[in-house]
């Protein structure tokens, strides 16, 4: 089973490396955009999927990351410096936004984070001196690595892929470390977790802050990709889109956001034939999906596997003993 998984991962990675050579410029761009959004969705998956704290603010964090990168790189600073600043900023703002979660949950938290996204959007739109207002910032440069310019789409794709793999590996490490267990403990039973010594207050704040930092990283990758950012890229609708990626893929599953982001990014491409009806079909699909499989695609898959396993007739002595307890 484990070998199978590793084999699968290697195959997917190989696919991702070959992919841009089979695609035209546009295909590569869509793939890059999938990588970028997966990073944002991964962050939200930590906050929501692992730690159980709903957030509608991920687009705002992408915005903070994207504007930091755009402003700093356009001023001639290196990309990596802008990433550090953008992620750091998001981490701090995420910590602050986490505070409401210490008091309120569920729908209240959804509204607070929704209000935050709207406020962030207003600042991006109205503070023209900094953000360029509704016209946004044009001409965000792409970084160069070791003197090699990444202006070419395929090269930037590989750069994004590299950062994406780093981000995924760190995420994997995080959620499989004791911290990941503490996040899940917070989601499953905060009172019990607290009584076992888990500082639930700190863990809640960290879940927001780290999730936000991933949002910032995603924004820092996005700005050079599209080379033009405006407030409309970071509205509530985009937050919802990221939330959708997490929920559709399977929130709380490591690969959930990968799959979810893929679907959400690719679906418009497949629905092109529908033209004006695209958004309608899209929305109807979401409603349908939520009704038939509320735990997302990976949730459905894992329940399916569990169901098949439990049908195995093997009768075990220790199970019998256990049944008596």
């Amino acid at each position: 089973m484990k070998q199978l998984k590793i084999l699968g991962l290697v195959a997917i990675l190989a696919g991702l490396i070959i992919a841009p050579f089979t695609q035209a410029t546009y295909g590569t761009y869509v793939l890059s955009s999938w990588l970028v959004f997966t990073v944002a969705a991964m962050g939200l998956n930590l906050t929501l999927g692992y730690a159980g704290q709903i957030s509608l603010a991920q687009a705002a964090f992408m915005g903070i990351g994207a504007y930091s990168t755009a402003l700093m790189t356009m001023a001639g600073l290196p990309w990596i410096a802008s990433v550090v600043v953008g992620m750091g900023l998001c981490f701090v703002v995420g910590l602050i936004l986490g505070y409401p979660a210490l008091r309120v949950q569920n729908h209240f938290l959804a509204f607070v984070t929704l209000a935050f996204t709207t406020l962030a959007f207003l600042v991006m739109r109205n503070e023209e001196w900094l953000t360029g207002g509704i016209y946004g910032l044009v001409g965000v440069p792409r970084p160069s690595v070791a003197g090699l310019s990444l202006m070419d789409g395929t090269r930037y794709y590989f750069f994004t892929l590299g950062v994406f793999i780093l981000a995924s590996l760190s995420f994997w490490w995080l959620v499989n470390s004791p911290w990941g267990r503490a996040f899940k403990g917070l989601r499953e039973n905060p009172i019990r977790a607290n009584s076992l010594g888990v500082d639930t207050r700190l863990v809640t704040l960290l879940a927001f802050a780290i999730g936000a930092a991933y949002g910032g990283l995603s924004g820092a990758l996005m700005a050079p990709l599209v080379q033009y950012i405006d407030p409309m890229s970071f509205t509530l609708i985009i937050s919802l889109k990221i939330l959708l990626m997490v929920v559709v893929g399977g929130s709380g599953y490591f690969f959930g956001p990968f799959l979810g982001a893929g679907l959400v990014i690719m679906l418009p491409e497949f629905l092109r034939f529908a033209e004006a009806y695209y958004l309608m079909i899209y929305a109807a699909l979401v409603v349908f999906l939520m009704v038939v499989c509320p735990s997302g695609l990976l949730g459905l898959l894992s329940r399916g596997i569990a169901a098949i396993r439990s049908r195995e007739p093997a009768e075990r002595g220790d199970l019998k003993e256990g049944a008596q307890l």
Binding site: L48, I54, N106, H107, A110, L240, L243, L244, V247, S251, Y282, A283, A284, V286, V287, M290, V291, P294
Partner: peptide
């Protein structure tokens, strides 16, 4: 809550 939130938004 989550599926309902998503579904009603959609």
């Amino acid at each position: 809550h989550l599926p309902i939130v998503m579904a009603t938004i959609a």
